[in-house]
Amino acid sequence: MKTSLPLRVAKFVVYAIILLIFVGPFWSIVMTAISGVSLKPGQLALLPQSPTFDNFKVAFLDMRVWRYLLNSMVVVSFGTIAQVVVSALAAYALARKKFRGAAIVSLLILSTLMLPEEVIAIPLYLVTIKQLPVIDTSIYNTYFAMILPVVGWAFSIFMLTEFMRAVPKELEEAARIDGANDWQVFGHVILPLIRPALGTVLIFGFIMIWDQYLLPLVVINDRDLETLPVALASLRSDPSITPNIIVAATLIAMAPSVIVYLLLQKHFNRGLMAGAVKG
């Protein structure tokens, strides 16, 4: 079908505007990051002026972004793994086990999604700063304080619960007749069948933990333990640091999310498909 010329022009204009809105900011971030000419706070470059990678070097080494990156990596890797393990186990119980108060447990988990994190910030601080019995210390100012609160995430629990509910019950029954116990049913039947969903939950969990800002701000009081989002914020408020460097640091902070997504993307897309046309 042939579209008329005015319509095509209109389409072109609309697409161009959309492209500009989405790509524009990213473009100018990259341009600013590779500009050798220092900009004033609030300024961004549209074209590279005397391009250089020095900004990255300064950000990474002099501004100690490497340290914050490392902290973020530690928190995100342990956090994501723990989160997926806990979510999968919780989801299995919710999807397949009959127990008293299952509905209430579900509701409690769901309610954690309804509280804005600003509301729980102070209770969270109070909890982390408490002296724990056996180890005789608090987890305040440790990696634990940033990891434990994100381990239980209602979103991934519910997502996995739905996927597990979709696994035919008869498969589980067949496995039980074949002699499998709970763990074997879980490991040999349920997990392999929801692998696509695990990939999805992994990505969402990674991004969720990577983006945590308020949590480290509340439970960490040591520059050496700060994660990237917190550190970037304090860099930004330092007037002596030019936008070029902040922007370069931001790009470094974005990189892992993008890399993880690209690595898992195939898995991710296939997962969504497999869920749709279950054979």
Partner: peptide, 30 residues
């Protein structure tokens, strides 16, 4: 007694074959 201790085998209407396992692995699972 639970199913696994009753020494029975069952053929389901939907067959309930483990989708991710080969025929060999399906048959040898027990």
């Amino acid at each position: 007694l639970p199913a696994k201790e009753r020494d029975i085998a069952m053929v389901f209407q939907s067959y309930a074959l483990y989708p991710q396992m080969s025929v060999r692995d399906n048959m040898s699972f027990a």
